[in-house]
Structure formats: structure tokens, C-alpha cells
Write a protein that binds this DNA or RNA. Structure first.
Length: 479
RNA sequence: CGGGGCGUAGCUCAGCCUGGUUAGAGUGCCGCGUUUGGGACGCGGAGGUCGCCGGUUCGAAUCCGGCCGCCCCGACCA
């Protein structure tokens, strides 16, 4: 662990991000440009996210399966929109077994092509529907500007691919995933507030009829697409020849969805909650929820360690993920800083001074607040404190997003200036035209992140062209 | 691909402009000792094809040419 301190978020947010990811031990660069080594601490956060998502995916009726990494280039090429959308980012294997392959194999940038060419064999009857499958996998997209977790050339994710009898059912599936799987995990577990909405035509997934998205605001005012759920219509089933016999005996194509969430979410946790001292992990994803730092000299060492171990056992028995940091080669101050960098939500300090008065000193990472708790009540107090930290991180992030959301800007110039400086989100009426979307992008580099769902507000006039608006839209600089 | 910057110890970097003993610092690492309530200290030690290739020169980390790689900003994107 280096002693070097972090750059401040306000001075250089990208530098802060890179340093905190490295110094906290989440990940580092690998020999392959854009591909990262995920270290145990970072992987533990991903595992927590995986567990939570997987539980919800299964609770909503889905099963896991697995399809291979390599896809024959010709299979991928059959879907023209997919090809146009991904062609430049696809890595291709041309050699294997010591010789040139007859047909190049694409490393999947996403699995729709292989999935639907497989589903063609699995779906024969309306009785085979719905097909509700998900896979945990990796994918490769040769991005031009990789960043740890946010955009790596290889990333880990889950991708769900479902087939349905009717459009209504497929649309309902798309929204169930958006709300009950993604938004619930991201808000209640990762404590990241999200806007739920639809993508504009220009931002849609290649081949999708509609793309639903969750958009989160990072601490630098930029938007992060946290997860997406696509209604694919019948495009992929048609392209890959998926036909079945319907209830009336006629030949039909199923309606499709696909949806994914990636290791990017780890970066989202870092950039939503982190501060100048390092990570601030929500308790529900923290690999360690509590760290106990014993403070001892030569004589009181056995007594202090014994008391610390007792507290650790009690917390562990209560289901708390706790670590007793009894390393003899570091002093307490070093440990405080290190665990703050790593974002452990609660720290318990226990020294001779505390023991003498029968207390432990409990410090929360999110606010820095310290208080003394009588030893018999430590476990109970911490249980409540962890829940409190979880909600207060979410509330703080929500407040921050509200504070940085400019609603109904007074004029186009104000809107553009706000967007150009990445001060946050702009929520304003939009006519729905791609010309207006393009003009804002040209003037500010910001894009429409989403058209919010359940937007009951009267549309008013488009903030760009002044024509009558069809909806509100949220604009921002994006990751 | 356009614009900027950088390749010297595990990491961060100084040295280069103005060529010249054995290439330095901080941090990290190993050993011993003293320490331990906000990043301890002392002593000892290990660790380098100075990105690569070529050129200039008596002599190159340093000057010249080419190549490779990386980082940041934009276009692309989960």
C-alpha cells in the first residue's frame, strides 16, 4: 500500500478515480490494452452484485445457462444492425490449431446472434414459450478509450435473452427486468439512485425496437448508464429463423427481449459514493462491513486482542461480515487510513482506554462520525448503524442528483452552458426530433440519456426548437 | 484517427537542455531493534538490459533518426 494520497475529486476527477481503483485494490491494468485484472477486493464487490442480481433474476422466473465465447463470423453477420453497431469493436480469431481457420470466429461482443440461432432449434411450439434464460459471461468490445470497470475491452456481465408469444408479454418482461431486477438491485443494494427511462432512437441498442435504461449521476456530474433492458420485437427471431406453431396452427415468430448489467456497476459504486479519502461502500456490497482495529501496547496486548476477538465473534454470529485487523506491523493510524481508502462502512476501535470504561469506539465511514458504545451493546448498535449507513448513502446521492439537476432551463444558452460544463443533468421538454438532439450534442457534446418513464408532466415547448414537446428528456455528459 | 504528454528500481518520479567516476530520491520490499488512540523511528540489505533498433562520438539515460508501448482530451461505447 503506497503512502501517496489521492488526488482530490474536485481537482481531477478522472485521476482520483484511477488512483482510488488502484490504491483500494479493486483492479489494475493488464498487459492487454484496455483489459483489466480484477483483484480480490474488487471481485468481491462484483460477486455481491452478482448474487443480488442473480437472486432477482431467478425470483422473476429465469434460469441460467451458458453459451460459448466464440461465434462463427457468418452467424454474427446475419443481423445487419448488429454488424453495423458492433463491427469496429469485434475481435476475431483467425488462427487456431496452428493453422488458418476456414471461417473466422468472432469473440462475442454480445450473444444475441448465437442465442437466437440456438433458439431456432429450441422453439417449435407456443408450448415452448416463454423462454426465460440468462447467462453470466464475459464479452469483448474493442473500445477506443478504455477505463477501469467503466469501459474495458473484456467485461463481465449477465445477459438475459427471452422469447415470448406476444408483444405485450415481451414488453412487460422488459419492464419487469428494468424495475424488479435492475433498479431494485442498484438502488437498494448499491445505494445508487437511478432515473428510469427509454433511450432515444439514436442511443438505442443495435437491433432493438426500444431500449430501456437506468441512468445514474456520478459525483462529477456525468451520467452513467447503469443497466439496459431491450425490447427487440421480432427482428432477431426473423433474422435467425425462429418460427413456431401458434395456438391457431399458424406459423409465428416470437417476440424477444435482451438485458444486461456489467462490471461497470463496480465503477458506478466508486463514482457515486467515493470521496477524497477513498471508497465509501454501501454495507450491502461491502466485502467487509466492519473492521475492528485493536490498539495495544506491549502489556495490554492480550487483553485487547481477546476483547476484540470477542466482539468480532459476536458480530460474525449476527451475520455481519467483519474483519479483525490484528496485523502487528502497522500502527492504528495507518489502518484507519487504509480501511477508509477501502471504504469499509464501519470501524470499531478497541484499546485499553475503551476497555477500562467498558466501551468500544465506533466510527462510520460515510460521515466520519465517531461515538462510544458500551461493549454489550456493540453488536446491536452496529446492526442498526449498517442499515442507517446504507440508506443515508442513498439519500446523500439522491440529494446530490437533485441539487445538480437543472429543470426547465430559462433558455437554450443556459442549458448548453450547464451541459458543456458537466454540472449535471438537464431535464427539459423535447419535441422528439433527432435534429434537436443532434444540435445539443454538437453545441455541448451532451446526449439525451433517457426519456423518463411515468412522466406525467405537461410537455410544454421543446427546449431546443420551441415546437410543442412530446415528452421530457434528460440530457447530460455521459461515461 | 485528430490534439497533448510520457517511457529511468515493484510504484511515483528526479537526472537529459549544457554527453564524462560505480545512475539517484521518495515510497514499497527483506532482516534486526525500539514503537503502537490518525499514514512510527533507527541501523543494515536486496532491487536497474535507463522502452527497442540504429546512428553521431574516445565516451550516450543524456544528442540525432526510426520503431514500439502507455496515459490524458475528442470521435465510438455497457
Amino acid at each position: 500500500m503506497s503512502k501517496t494520497s489521492l488526488p482530490s475529486q474536485s481537482a481531477d476527477f478522472p485521476a482520483w478515480y484511477g488512483e482510488v481503483v488502484r490504491q483500494a485494490g479493486l483492479a489494475e491494468n493488464s498487459p492487454v490494452r484496455g483489459a483489466m485484472v480484477i483483484k480480490p477486493y474488487g471481485y468481491a464487490i462484483w460477486e455481491a452484485i452478482q448474487r443480488e442480481l442473480d437472486d432477482r433474476i431467478k425470483a422473476t422466473g429465469h434460469e441460467n445457462f451458458y453459451l460459448p465465447l466464440l461465434v462463427p463470423a457468418s452467424v454474427l453477420a446475419r443481423e445487419s444492425e448488429l454488424v453495423e453497431g458492433f463491427a469496429p469493436e469485434v475481435a476475431v480469431v483467425t488462427q487456431a490449431g496452428g493453422k488458418e481457420l476456414e471461417e473466422p470466429l468472432a469473440v462475442r461482443p454480445t450473444s444475441e446472434a448465437l442465442i437466437w440461432s440456438t433458439y431456432a432449434r429450441w422453439i417449435q411450439s407456443y408450448r415452448d414459450l416463454p423462454l426465460l434464460y440468462n447467462q453470466w459471461a464475459n464479452a469483448v468490445r474493442w473500445e477506443l478509450r478504455p477505463r477501469l470497470f467503466l469501459r474495458t475491452s473484456e467485461f463481465l456481465w449477465q445477459e438475459g435473452h427471452t422469447a415470448h408469444e406476444t408483444e405485450e408479454e415481451a414488453l412487460a418482461e422488459t419492464l419487469t427486468i428494468l424495475h424488479d431486477v435492475y433498479a431494485d438491485t442498484i438502488e437498494s443494494v448499491l445505494a445508487i439512485p437511478v432515473l428510469r427511462g427509454r433511450k432515444s432512437a439514436g442511443e438505442r441498442f443495435p437491433g432493438a425496437v426500444d431500449t430501456y435504461t437506468l441512468e445514474a449521476m456520478m459525483r462529477d456530474g456525468k451520467a452513467l448508464q447503469a443497466a439496459t433492458s431491450h425490447y427487440l420485437g421480432q427482428g432477431f427471431p426473423r433474422t435467425y429463423g425462429v418460427r413456431y406453431t401458434g395456438r391457431d396452427g399458424s406459423e409465428r415468430h416470437p417476440y424477444a427481449t435482451s438485458w444486461g448489467a456489467t462490471t461497470r456497476l463496480v465503477g458506478g459504486v466508486v463514482m457515486t459514493h467515493g470521496d477524497d479519502r477513498g471508497l465509501r461502500l454501501p454495507p450491502r456490497v461491502a466485502p467487509q462491513q466492519v473492521v475492528i482495529v485493536p490498539i495495544f501496547g506491549e502489556e495490554d496486548r492480550p487483553a485487547v486482542l481477546e476483547a476484540a476477538a470477542a466482539v468480532a465473534d459476536e458480530l460474525r454470529a449476527a451475520g455481519v461480515r467483519v474483519r479483525l485487523d490484528d496485523r502487528p506491523d502497522h500502527r492504528p493510524g495507518f489502518k484507519f487510513n487504509e480501511w477508509e481508502l477501502k471504504g469499509v462502512p464501519v470501524r470499531v476501535e478497541l484499546g485499553a482506554r475503551d476497555l477500562a470504561s467498558g466501551v468500544a469506539t465506533v466510527a462510520r465511514r460515510d460521515t466520519g462520525e465517531k461515538r462510544e458504545v458500551p461493549l454489550p451493546r456493540v453488536a446491536g448498535a452496529i446492526d442498526g448503524l449498517l442499515m442507517h449507513v446504507q440508506t443515508s448513502l442513498f439519500d446523500a446521492a439522491s440529494d446530490e442528483r437533485e441539487r445538480r439537476t437543472l429543470r426547465d432551463p430559462s433558455g437554450y444558452d443556459e442549458m448548453i452552458e450547464y451541459l458543456r460544463e458537466a454540472r449535471g443533468f438537464v431535464m427539459a421538454p423535447w419535441c422528439g426530433g433527432s435534429e434537436c438532439e443532434g444540435r445539443v450534442k454538437a453545441d455541448s457534446t451532451a446526449t439525451i440519456r433517457c426519456v423518463p418513464l411515468n412522466d406525467g408532466s405537461p410537455p410544454g415547448r421543446c427546449a431546443v426548437c420551441g415546437q410543442s414537446a412530446v415528452s421530457e428528456a434528460v440530457w447530460a455528459q455521459a461515461y
